[in-house]
């Protein structure tokens, strides 16, 4: 019961933060709202008994990625981003398009209504996850380091090219 309430609470908080983010004009405030959405997602993971994912969500998304966004926002001159924001009509149009997407998604997944999910809090997920990552998915997990290496090289090349020109 408590877990159900927590799932709805954190899901609602994340949705609210995302909605407010759409109508927020200040970029840094929008970033803070995104942080709220990401932290609510971490709570959602905790309610779904994915403790390691909740911790990683806070460290990776709310920590590292948000820092990147804030640095990118502060490193660019304010004159480049201080443009009058789009009219409310366009935002409403975007929300209508999103409502269409949502309706379609819910329609497609109507079969899920028959699946009953009874969330129970368990603590042993992390050990099993480690076994899966270093057993069943070793190749994929090691391949990820290549992806990250490629992204580091790409980002450094872009930044270095900018400096030399």
């Amino acid at each position: 019961m408590i877990i159900n309430a927590a799932i709805y609470l954190f899901g609602g908080l994340a949705a609210l933060a995302t909605l407010l983010m759409i109508f927020q004009r200040e970029p840094v405030k929008a970033a803070m709202l995104m942080l709220a959405a990401l932290l609510s997602t971490a709570g959602l993971y905790l309610a779904l008994s994915a403790q390691l994912l909740a911790a990683l969500q806070i460290i990776l998304y709310a920590g590292a990625i948000m820092t990147l966004f804030i640095v990118a926002l502060t490193a660019t001159p304010a004159a480049w981003r201080d443009k009058p924001s789009k009219s409310r009509f366009i935002k409403m149009l975007g929300l209508a398009a999103a409502a269409v997407i949502l309706t379609e998604l819910l329609k497609v997944s109507a079969l899920l209504k028959q699946t009953v999910f009874s969330p129970e809090f368990s603590e042993t997920g992390t050990l099993d996850l480690a076994r899966a990552l270093f057993g069943q998915f070793t190749f994929q997990f090691e391949l990820l380091s290549l992806v990250i290496l490629a992204s580091i090289v790409g980002a450094v090349t872009l930044a270095a090219g900018k400096r030399s020109s």
Binding site: G11, A14, A15, T18, L19, I22, A37, K91, G94, L95, A97, A98, A99, I101, L102, L105, L106, S109
Partner: peptide, 9 residues
């Protein structure tokens, strides 16, 4: 899905 469509909007 709600989160996804709000982000898409």
């Amino acid at each position: 899905f709600v989160l996804f469509s709000l982000a898409a909007a």
